[in-house]
């Protein structure tokens, strides 16, 4: 079920730990990188590969917010809703994104292009409000410039 490439990347991560199963989060991240999310099938394959039950691994996978157990869009928007961004206008930026994309927090656009999720503090509070689209960070946002980002992305 796991591809040869996934297996070789997971094996490399396993070398960093004294216990094989400790690499389970790295393994989930690898599968997610290749497939976009972690399906039940993929979860079972990872569990078998690192040596734990699928039930236990699901308990771990669902604990962490960067492991997706549901399909997400090609671009995942993570908008910071913590205190500094709140003070600096998070609500307005979020509302603008929601109206631009026609989705609410936690939803994916019908074309599977964007998923909108909240995230805790991104550690860039002097340039709040901030958000990430996949691996890229955007800051100093307001109602006007946030729409620009989507036109470029």
């Amino acid at each position: 079920m796991l591809t040869a490439e996934e297996k070789s990347e997971i094996e490399h991560e396993i070398t960093k730990f004294p216990v094989r199963r400790s690499a389970c989060l790295e393994a989930l991240a690898i599968v997610q990188k290749h497939r976009g999310w972690v399906s039940d099938e993929a979860l079972k394959a990872v569990a078998d590969y690192v040596g734990m039950s699928a039930t236990e691994l699901d308990g771990i996978a669902t604990f962490y917010n960067l492991i997706y157990r549901k399909p997400v869009g090609k671009k995942v928007i993570r908008i910071c809703d913590s205190v500094s961004c709140f003070i600096m206008g998070y609500d307005k930026v979020r509302a603008k994104i929601e109206s631009e994309l026609g989705i609410k927090l936690g939803q994916t656009t019908p074309d599977h292009e964007f998923t909108l999720l909240p995230t805790p503090c991104l550690g860039t509070c002097d340039r709040a409000p901030a958000l990430m689209i996949n691996d890229s960070l955007f800051r100093d946002l307001n109602e006007d410039n946030v729409a620009q980002i989507f036109r470029h992305e």
């Binding site: 960093k16 730990f17 216990v19 199963r21 400790s22 690499a23 389970c24 989060l25 790295e26 989930l28 991240a29 690192v50 308990g59 771990i60 604990f63 962490y64 917010n65 960067l66 492991i67 805790p120």
Partner: peptide, 24 residues
């Protein structure tokens, strides 16, 4: 080890559980 997310991982003993590949 890039964290898979959650504030509680910053707590020392939860961090160790996360590093061991458990719930933090």
């Amino acid at each position: 080890h890039p964290s898979a997310g959650r504030y509680i991982c910053g707590e020392e003993t939860a961090l160790m559980n996360a590093l061991e590949g458990k719930r933090a």
